[in-house]
Design a binder for these strands. Sequence first.
RNA 1: GAUGAUCGGCAGACUGUCGCUUCCUGAAAGGGAGGAGGAAAGUCCGGACAGCAUAGAGCAACGCACCCUGUGACAAGCGGGGGAUUGAUUCUUUCUUGGAAUCAAUACAGAAAGUGCCACAGAAAAUUACCGCCCGCCCCAUCGGGGCGGGCAAGGGUGAAAACGUGAGGUAAGGGCUCACGGUCGCAAUGGUAACAUUGUUGACGGGUAAACCUUGUGUGCUGAAAUGCCAUGUAAACUGUCGCUUGAGAACUGCUCGUUCAAUGACAGAGGGUAGGCAGAUUGAUCCCGGCGUGCAAAUGACGGGACAGAUAAAUGACGGUCGGCAGAUUUUGAAAAAGAUUUGUCAACAGAAUCCGGCUUAUUGUAGAUCAUUCAUA
RNA 2: CGGGACGUGGCGCAGCCCGGUAGCGCACUUGUAUGGGGUGCAAGGGGUCGCUAGUUCGAAUCUAGUCGUCCCGA
Length: 134
Amino acid sequence: MSDKPILRYTLGREERLKSRKKISALFAAGKVIPLPPFRLLYQIHPELPALQMGVAVSTRNFKKAVDRNRIKRLIREAYRLQKNELKNSLEQQQRGLSLFIIYTGKALPDYALVFEKTGKLLDALMKKTNEIPQ
RNA sequence: GAUGAUCGGCAGACUGUCGCUUCCUGAAAGGGAGGAGGAAAGUCCGGACAGCAUAGAGCAACGCACCCUGUGACAAGCGGGGGAUUGAUUCUUUCUUGGAAUCAAUACAGAAAGUGCCACAGAAAAUUACCGCCCGCCCCAUCGGGGCGGGCAAGGGUGAAAACGUGAGGUAAGGGCUCACGGUCGCAAUGGUAACAUUGUUGACGGGUAAACCUUGUGUGCUGAAAUGCCAUGUAAACUGUCGCUUGAGAACUGCUCGUUCAAUGACAGAGGGUAGGCAGAUUGAUCCCGGCGUGCAAAUGACGGGACAGAUAAAUGACGGUCGGCAGAUUUUGAAAAAGAUUUGUCAACAGAAUCCGGCUUAUUGUAGAUCAUUCAUA
RNA sequence: CGGGACGUGGCGCAGCCCGGUAGCGCACUUGUAUGGGGUGCAAGGGGUCGCUAGUUCGAAUCUAGUCGUCCCGA
């Protein structure tokens, strides 16, 4: 039996970005990785809640609340299944990261596309965090 | 049976893996139970609830408009019953007019308080007079024509609309001038809770428009969950200016005025600083559904019995599969055909996502069980 | 959650309050001046007044409903 805990694909309350202050800071000073039809905003900080994320879809592109909800759920689902590698890396380095995924496309995406693009975004983010020194 | 219209119910079911959220349980790990709609939408109305004074007065502003009644509901909305008007169908009657029944629709107070407007056409769009009809006088003079003064509103023509309508009498010609029938309004009586109806009438005859201003009646105090109360964090009972300290600055969330109340470790403004988190409000309430009983013409309602009801807050209710079932297509077997069975593929819908709650209205919309009505076909 | 504004030729706007003729600028077409173009001059075409009902003799205008676009409020 290993001491390592069983890897769980969770996305609970403490893993989501909920503070109004942090979101304002992220939008004011965060860096951007564009990958159409997505944009990723991120900001590295030394505090420990290792990884917190948020999702947004513009009302301008999707007038109906049903469509916005669906896109946000798809993004969260794809993120939930792929974020553990990044999280472990950050915990080893003892630093935190806030990130915000914005969907900028105008058509409803399907799950396969969202999954693939989210994976690429997280890979890119891994490289950036490793490049930036503590 | 088919087609169409209206009403109106449901919103595929069960399940695996990985997740989200609320509650319960547990020391913890974990376990258990619940988790979007008929419109959750638009925000077009009305409330509940909260604060401001116990919510006051007048003006202004805004809403509403046949009557009775039910609903949390005075008014509005919605439901029930009734009235009036309009339209359709059927029946009745001597053709019409009219009467009766059924169904449907109605933003159904007032144009006889006042003001405005009614293009073009037309003489005139509301104190009318172009062609015209009639009377008197004068002139030319053959019937007749012209001018002046006066009376008239029938006929012509215009228009969406023409001065109660039709007929008769009367008249110089005409005119509700008079009469008959009819219409509208007023008044009175009778019936009805009332809207209204019926009858009578030495009474009147005034075109339309109030979704033009307006008048009458009636309702509304204002603000709005970012309301409101509490806790936490933090500074500053600091600074500047103006006014005031009981003869009172100012405040009481209102467009104005008044009244009332509060008001002195003061009030307002400026600049500057802090927070932008949590709890309550807030999810079971005038709630909804079912049952028989009582009341009521009905809508509805009373007590009783049973059942149901999410609570997020950068915002949960999801992702990927499986089985059954429905629908559509293809292949194949049986069969003369209709049809039935098997295999397989696709699809599971449309409109759409709670944000304090409730009621109404409006709009969007898939498939299907059902009810009613109309048309048509078949059989008896 | 709560307020507010606007839809009129291809584009930007007026007309709406107080109802009868839809107009302005740019653009477009034709002609003309020029060797050709720009430019000037002259003439012309083009509008379901967002949509659906209603009021009225008559609606871009008044009323109701609806669709769309945009803005504001800690």
